[in-house]
Amino acid sequence: MARVLLVDDDTELCALQAEYLRAEGFEVEAVYDGEQGAGLALEGGFDIVVLDVMMPRTNGIEALRRIRARSRIPVIMLTARGDDIDRVLGLELGADDYVPKPCTPRELVARIRAILRRAQGTPGPRETQVLGVGALCVRPEQRRAEWQGRLLELTSTEFNLLEVLARCAGNPVSKNELSEKALGRPLARYDRSIDVHVSNLRAKLGDLPDGRSPIQTVRGIGYQYIVS
C-alpha cells in the first residue's frame, strides 16, 4: 500500500483528498505547512508527496527546494490554475509533475498512480537490459543512469524521460509520446512540463566533446537523443 504525504494549508480540501485517497487504497498523512511537510518527507516512509505551492511559513517552492537537496522522492505540486511562474519554477526545482487547483480527487489519484507506476513498477523482460548510448548507461531495472561513468541524480520523471530517449536514440520522439510515457498523461495545450524536464536533464548531462547537448530539439516534433 503506497503512502502519500499531503501538504496543504487548506484543511477542508486536504481532508477531502485524504478521504478519497484512502478509499482508493492509499495510506495518507496530511500536514498543513511546508516546513513540517519537508521535514516529514525527508524522514522517509512515504512513497510520494503532494505539495501545495501557496502555504504559510514555508511555502511549497521552498519546501520542494529542501526536499530535493536531500531526496529523490516523487513530488507532485498543486498550483493555482494559470500560475505558470510557480509551475515552471517547481518543475525546474525537480517536481515530477503538477496538478492545477482546483482539481478533482479523481484527477489527483490518476496523477499519483501514474508517477508511482513509473517510479516503482515491476520491470518486465525488456527492461532488464542495460541501455548504452555513447557515454550514457541506463539501467532500467535499477532505475539508475550514468553519464561518463558518473551516477546521475535524477527525479523519477527525469529518469523516465531519459530512458525513453535512450531507447529511441537516433530517432525523434514527440513531446506527446514523452508525456504519455514519462508522466502518464497526454500533453495538454501550452503545457511546458516536458520542455522544463528536458532542460533539467541537459544541465545534468552536460555537453558532448563537440559542445552539443546529447539531447537535441527536433523542431515541430520533440526531442532526440543523438548517437555520437
Rank of each mutant, 00 (worst) to 15 (best):
83 D>N: 15
69 A>Y: 00
31 V>I: 11
69 A>N: 10
150 R>P: 02
105 P>D: 09
49 V>G: 00
152 L>M: 12
57 R>T: 12
195 D>C: 03
33 D>V: 02
134 G>C: 10
70 R>Q: 14
159 F>V: 05
155 T>Q: 04
82 G>R: 08
215 I>P: 03
137 C>D: 12
103 C>H: 14
105 P>W: 05
17 Q>F: 13
194 I>M: 03
149 G>K: 09
193 S>F: 00
124 G>D: 08
97 D>N: 14
151 L>M: 13
68 R>H: 11
85 I>S: 08
12 E>K: 12
137 C>G: 01
143 R>P: 03
100 P>D: 13
86 D>T: 13
89 L>Y: 00
21 L>T: 00
137 C>Q: 14
168 C>H: 13
20 Y>Q: 07
113 R>S: 10
92 E>G: 11
161 L>K: 04
210 D>Y: 06
120 Q>I: 00
24 E>K: 15
33 D>T: 02
219 R>I: 10
183 L>Y: 00
218 V>W: 02
214 P>E: 06
3 R>I: 00
216 Q>R: 15
132 G>Q: 14
163 E>W: 04
88 V>Y: 07
228 S>R: 13
22 R>Y: 01
75 V>C: 01
188 A>D: 12
193 S>L: 01
131 L>T: 03
6 L>F: 07
213 S>G: 09
179 S>P: 05
133 V>C: 06
227 V>Y: 02
1 M>K: 02
158 E>P: 10
110 A>M: 06
87 R>W: 04
92 E>D: 12
35 E>F: 05
110 A>D: 11
108 L>S: 03
75 V>H: 01
178 L>R: 06
135 A>M: 08
105 P>H: 05
170 G>I: 10
199 S>T: 14
50 V>T: 15
84 D>T: 14
114 A>W: 02
14 C>M: 09
147 W>I: 10
169 A>P: 02
68 R>A: 06
30 A>T: 06
208 L>S: 10
152 L>Q: 07
192 R>Q: 15
32 Y>R: 01
197 H>M: 14
198 V>A: 07
135 A>P: 13
32 Y>E: 08
187 L>I: 09
39 G>K: 07
56 P>W: 12
176 N>A: 10
1 M>W: 00
172 P>R: 13
99 V>I: 15
160 N>Y: 00
223 Y>E: 11
109 V>A: 14
164 V>G: 03
165 L>K: 09
49 V>L: 01
82 G>C: 05
24 E>N: 09
48 I>M: 01
160 N>S: 15
204 K>V: 05
150 R>N: 11
156 S>G: 11
13 L>Q: 13
62 E>N: 11
105 P>M: 08
176 N>F: 03
162 L>F: 03
10 D>E: 15
145 A>E: 08
186 P>C: 04
67 I>M: 06
13 L>N: 12
197 H>A: 09
32 Y>C: 06
103 C>E: 05
139 R>T: 11
132 G>A: 12
20 Y>H: 15
188 A>K: 12
160 N>V: 00
79 T>P: 06
63 A>V: 10
8 D>F: 00
217 T>M: 07
158 E>S: 09
29 E>M: 02
152 L>W: 04
216 Q>Y: 03
48 I>H: 00
